[in-house]
Simulated assay, not measured.
Amino acid sequence: MLNRPIFGLYTDTRQQGRDNIKKVDALVADGTENQFMYRNLFVIGLIKQNGVIVNSIEELCEALKTTNQ
């Protein structure tokens, strides 16, 4: 079996609000107010086992450069 790195590019626009305190407070107050994105944790775990997940094309390019060295 080949050991090849996996690169995940996660560009969901909803991730931009994850530092918004009002969003976090709304989630704490009422779980049905979850405005955060859905991620399949099984897939995330598999990617992280042998790779990296990045949030932009620039981060992806850097990760690819680092891996090829």
Rank of each mutant, 00 (worst) to 15 (best):
M1C: 00
M1G: 00
M1T: 02
M1P: 03
M1W: 00
L2I: 10
N3L: 03
R4Q: 12
R4K: 11
P5C: 06
I6R: 12
I6C: 13
F7K: 07
G8K: 01
G8L: 05
L9S: 04
L9K: 03
Y10W: 08
Y10C: 03
Y10E: 01
Y10R: 02
T11N: 13
T11K: 10
T11G: 07
T11M: 12
D12K: 04
D12A: 03
T13L: 12
T13V: 09
R14W: 01
Q15A: 06
Q15G: 08
Q15P: 02
Q16P: 08
Q16R: 09
G17S: 05
G17P: 00
R18T: 09
R18K: 07
R18D: 06
R18E: 06
D19E: 10
N20T: 05
N20K: 02
N20E: 09
N20V: 01
K22L: 10
K23G: 05
K23H: 13
K23P: 05
V24A: 00
V24G: 07
V24C: 03
V24N: 11
D25H: 06
D25C: 10
D25I: 07
D25W: 00
D25R: 00
A26P: 08
L27R: 10
L27M: 13
L27P: 05
L27W: 04
V28R: 15
V28Y: 15
V28G: 14
A29R: 15
D30H: 10
G31V: 14
E33N: 06
N34T: 07
N34R: 05
Q35A: 13
Q35S: 14
F36H: 07
M37N: 14
M37H: 13
Y38L: 04
R39A: 13
R39S: 10
N40W: 05
N40H: 07
N40T: 08
L41W: 12
L41N: 12
F42P: 00
F42Y: 01
F42M: 00
V43I: 04
V43K: 03
V43M: 08
V43Y: 06
V43Q: 09
I44C: 01
I44S: 00
G45H: 14
G45Q: 14
L46G: 15
L46F: 13
L46E: 11
L46A: 13
L46R: 15
I47W: 12
K48V: 00
K48R: 08
N50H: 12
G51L: 03
V52H: 10
V52K: 10
V52S: 05
V52N: 07
V52T: 04
V54A: 03
V54Y: 09
V54G: 09
N55M: 10
N55F: 11
N55S: 13
S56K: 09
S56G: 02
I57W: 03
I57M: 01
E58I: 11
E58C: 01
E59M: 08
E59W: 04
E59F: 06
L60T: 11
L60E: 08
C61I: 06
E62N: 03
E62P: 02
E62T: 06
E62F: 04
A63S: 06
A63H: 07
L64H: 08
L64T: 09
L64A: 05
L64I: 08
L64S: 02
K65A: 14
K65I: 15
T66A: 15
T66M: 04
T66V: 12
T67P: 12
N68F: 02
N68T: 02
Q69Y: 12
Q69R: 13
Q69W: 10
Q69C: 11
Q69D: 15
Q69L: 14
